[in-house]
């Protein structure tokens, strides 16, 4: 994407009825492809004219822009428009992408792949670290051929707790929790586990 294309993105977005205003002179436009989509990709706008900076992220096929608003709806809308290509290799990236953009009443969900590399691990006491490592259940991905769905067993951080959960991902991208079990409480992250990095895709 060159400067001209970035200007076009701002132009396309500003033409929408529900457009959020961004500075033409001080907005960074960046994008990233997502392996599970053919046509849609992530587009991030950050307005440096305001303090603090203001960021919105969209799913786009270059024509339509779907704002990611913290609920599952926009992702499901994109899933319908651009049928997903889920594989054993990209099922975890899809789940991580989903959780990094969808929140519940207790905040963000974070899938812990490795307890030693969990965000803010060094903020916890030695006893807490030990409990986290002991309670951690490794990620396990299975394909349920009968339902054409993936079943992912994983340790999740949500609302200051670690949970062992079974996540079903249907072929259309819909996610459901088949089972959830509390492993550990009092594990509060001081900030977002996702930071502002482009970990999404």
């Amino acid at each position: 994407m060159n400067r001209e294309q970035a200007g076009r993105v701002l132009g396309q977005l500003s033409a929408r009825d529900d457009a959020i205003v961004f500075s033409r002179d001080a907005t960074e436009v960046s994008w990233r492809g997502l392996a599970f989509f053919s046509n849609y990709r992530l587009c991030r706008l950050t307005n440096y004219a305001t303090m603090p900076t203001f960021t919105m992220t969209y799913l786009t096929d270059g024509t339509e822009y779907i704002a990611l608003d913290g609920t599952a709806n926009p992702i499901y809308t994109a899933d319908e428009k651009d049928p997903l290509m889920l594989t054993e290799e990209n099922i975890l990236p899809y789940i991580e992408f989903f959780f990094s953009h969808v929140q519940g009443s207790e905040g963000e969900v974070f899938l812990v792949r490795d307890p030693h590399k969990m965000p803010f691990i060094n903020n916890f006491t030695d006893a807490q670290k030990q409990s986290i490592v002991q309670n951690f259940k490794p990620v396990n991905v299975q394909f349920d051929a009968a339902h054409n769905a993936y079943l992912v067993e994983a340790t999740l951080h949500y609302g200051g707790t670690l949970m062992d959960a079974s996540i079903a991902v249907m072929p259309d991208g819909k996610i459901s929790f088949e089972r959830q079990h509390l492993l550990l409480s009092g594990i509060h992250f001081p900030d977002s586990p996702y930071g502002r990095n482009w970990i999404e895709g």
């Binding site: 519940g104 207790e106 969900v109 200051g160 459901s176 509390l182 409480s185």
Partner: peptide, 14 residues
């Protein structure tokens, strides 16, 4: 101790 409900995350918006 109340457990958090992950299904919160999947609500379509209140």
């Amino acid at each position: 101790m109340a457990s958090k409900d992950l299904n919160d995350v999947l609500l379509p918006g209140r």
